[in-house]
Design a protein around this nucleic acid. Structure first.
Lengths: 340, 340
DNA sequence: GTGAAAGCGCTAACAG
DNA sequence: CTGTTAGCGCTTTCAC
C-alpha cells in the first residue's frame, strides 16, 4: 500500500500537490499534474479511505440495520439502498440485528458516527432510545419505512402508506365477491403491521362486512408462520373463501396450507399479500399482492440521510423530517385470487 | 462525538491513560480507572473506529463481494459470513458487483486495504487479475467456494466438493430407477458449475447411462432460467423422467415448467437440485437437493482471511493456501423425487 | 502553482 | 502507574 507522500516523492512534489491533482482542487501546472499521475500509476496508489475519513471528518459508509439479511425481503431492499448509496460515494455495512435490541445497540454504539456517517433502519426491532442516543452523538438516523401515519416516530423517516395497501388488498377481495375473509397479521397485534390490518378493516367496514376476532391471526412474518396461522383459520372456519395476509411471506405460507388441506388456490381460496417480493411472482400460483414502492423508499431514505449528514443539526433540534414516497401502493393481480 | 482527549481532560489524566483503561492495556490505578470510566460515561464517549483503524494500521471491516445480494442464496451466505466476522470484531461491507467485473474492480480498488482489511469473494464474476492486484497491494483475498478441485485458482480459497454433490444427485435419481435424465447447468459450459455437471456425468457413466448432448441445457442460474431450460428439455423429449439441475433455483424453475406442461412432480418427473437454500424446503413440492455446507464454508473463509491478515505475506510469496470444508455434501430427500 | 505545517482521533513505544 | 512523544495517511489553510 503506497502512500501519498511516496507518490509525492516520486513525482518530486509535496503530498499537498498530489492531493490537489487527485481531487481536482486548487490550481496545478499541467506538467506536474502529469508527473503526479504517472507516479500514481507507477506505484499503483489508491487513497486510504480510513485516513481520508479521519482527515475529512466524514466516513464513506452508512449502516443498514435489518433484522436478518436472510429474510427474503431485506436483500431486495438492501440492494436498492446500496445502489442509491453508491451515487453519493457511500459503501453500506449490513448490520443484522437478528431482532435483538442488544445486538442492535452494539452496532449503533460501535459504528454510528465513527465508521459510518449515518444509519438506515429497516424493521430491525431497535430500541428507540438507542436510536435517539446515536442521533445525539451526531450520527443521523433514518427509518426507512414508517408504517404508522398517525404516530410519528420522532425520528427522520420515510413514510409509506401501508394502510392504503391493506385497503387495496381488502377491496380487491371484496370486489371479487368474497365475504368471509380471514386475516393474518405478520406481527404482534400492536406491532409493525398494525396499520396494514387497519386498512384491511377499513375496507371491510366500508363494505359493511364484519371481521370476527376469530378470523384474524397474529403470526411470525414468515412462510412457516403464515402456514400455521392459515391452517388455524381454515380449520376453524371451513367456509372462509379468502385470506388477506399483511405480508407476502405469510401469504405464501397460506397457499401451502390451503394445498395441504385440500383446498386449491385460487379456486377454493383466494389469497392476497402485501409487498410484492420477487418470490411472489415465482410461487405457484403466482401471488396476488399489493406492491409497495420499496425501491423508491430506499432511494428517499438514502437521500434523506445524506441531507441530514450535510446539514448537521446546528443546535436547533429541528423537528424530525418526514418524507413520503410519491408512488402509492399498487394492487398486482396474479393467480392467487379469483371471482367467488 | 466526544474524543479521547476530552474524556482525558475531564478525568484529569492523559489520553494515553484513557486508551489504556479502555483496552485493558498496561497497568492503571483503580481510582483513575474509575474516574476515567465515569468520564467516558458522562460524555457518552465511543472510540472513533476510523481513527483507531488508522493508528493501528488495520481496518475493522472486510468486504464481501457477491454478484447480487438479491439472489436468494447470497443472503444466507452473507449472514453466515457476518456472524463469523463479528467474532473477530469485523464488520462486513456488502459489495454487489452485479456480475460486472468493472464494478467489482471499482470496489476492490477503493476499499481493499484501506477501508477493509480483506476481501471475501463469492461468485462475483471478478477478474482474477484484479484480485491478484488487490492482493499485491496488501489486502488478502479469499475465494469462498472454490468448485474445481483439479484447477487451483492461485488464490487462497475454501474448497467445496461440488463434484461429489453432482454425483450424489445423479446416484439418487439412478437408484430411483430413472434412466432418461436431463441436466440443467446454471452457468456457461465452462463456467462455475462445470464440476457439478461432471459429477453428474461421472455417476451416469458409472451406471452405464448416456447423457446425449440434447439432454443438457445451459441456462442462467435463476428460477426463470431453469424454467426455460426445462421446457426446452421436456418438450424435446417427452419420455424424460428426471431432471438434475446444478443449483436449486433452476431446479425450482423446472418444477414450475413441469406443472405448466401438465406433468406433475414427482409423479411424472423427478427433480433434484444442489445447495439447499431455504426456498428448497418451502417449495411445492419441497425440493430434493444436495445440501452443501455453506455455513461451514463461510466460517472457514472468514478464518482463513483472518489468518492471512494476521501473518502478512512476509516476502516469501507462499503458495496460496487452500482449505477444504470438512462436511461433505449431503443428499436431502424431499418431495420432488420418487421411484420410477 | 506549489510547499510547509497543523491536525483529524487514536495507538504505541518509551520515559519517568 | 501515568505522561510524553511520535506518528498512522490524508486534507486543508495559508504562505511563498
Amino acid at each position: 500500500m503506497s502512500t501519498l507522500s511516496e507518490v509525492a516523492r516520486r513525482a518530486g512534489v509535496t503530498s499537498a500537490t498530489v492531493s490537489n491533482v487527485l481531487r481536482n482542487r486548487g490550481r496545478v501546472g499541467e506538467q506536474t499534474r502529469q508527473r503526479v499521475l504517472e507516479a500514481v500509476e507507477a506505484l499503483n496508489y489508491r487513497p486510504h479511505l480510513a485516513a481520508r475519513a479521519l482527515a475529512e471528518g466524514r466516513a464513506p459508509t452508512i449502516a443498514l440495520m435489518v433484522s436478518s439479511i436472510a429474510n427474503p425481503f431485506y436483500p431486495e431492499f438492501a440492494l436498492a439502498v446500496e445502489r442509491a448509496a453508491r451515487t453519493s460515494g457511500h459503501f453500506v455495512i449490513i448490520c443484522n440485528t437478528n431482532e435483538d435490541p442488544q445486538a442492535g445497540r452494539a452496532y449503533l454504539e460501535q459504528i454510528a458516527g465513527t465508521l459510518s456517517e449515518g444509519v438506515l433502519v429497516m424493521n430491525a426491532n431497535l430500541d428507540f432510545d438507542d436510536l435517539h442516543k446515536t442521533q445525539a452523538r451526531g450520527a443521523p438516523v433514518v427509518l426507512c419505512m414508517w408504517e404508522r401515519p398517525d404516530d410519528p416516530p420522532g425520528l427522520p423517516c420515510v413514510a409509506v402508506d401501508f394502510r392504503l395497501a391493506g385497503q387495496l388488498a381488502a377491496r380487491h377481495l371484496i370486489e371479487l365477491g368474497h365475504r368471509r375473509i380471514g386475516a393474518i397479521v405478520g406481527s404482534k397485534p400492536s406491532g409493525i403491521h398494525a396499520s396494514r390490518y387497519e386498512g384491511f378493516a377499513d375496507a371491510m367496514r366500508e363494505a359493511g362486512l364484519k371481521v370476527p376476532a376469530k378470523n384474524v391471526r397474529y403470526a411470525p412474518d414468515t412462510i412457516e408462520g403464515g402456514y400455521m396461522a392459515a391452517r388455524g383459520l381454515l380449520e376453524r372456519d371451513a367456509k372462509m373463501t379468502a385470506i388477506f395476509a399483511t405480508n407476502d411471506l405469510p401469504a405464501l405460507g397460506t397457499i401451502h396450507a390451503a394445498a395441504d388441506l385440500g383446498r386449491e388456490v385460487p379456486r377454493d381460496l383466494s389469497v392476497v399479500g402485501i409487498t410484492d417480493i420477487q418470490l411472489a411472482q415465482q410461487s405457484r400460483p403466482p401471488l396476488t399482492t399489493v406492491a409497495v414502492p420499496t425501491v423508491e423508499a430506499a432511494g428517499l431514505a438514502v437521500s434523506l440521510l445524506r441531507d441530514l449528514i450535510e446539514q448537521p443539526t446546528h443546535g436547533a433540534q429541528r423537528k424530525a423530517p418526514r418524507v413520503c414516497v410519491t408512488s402509492a401502493p399498487q394492487l398486482i393481480v396474479r393467480g392467487s385470487t379469483q371471482q367467488r
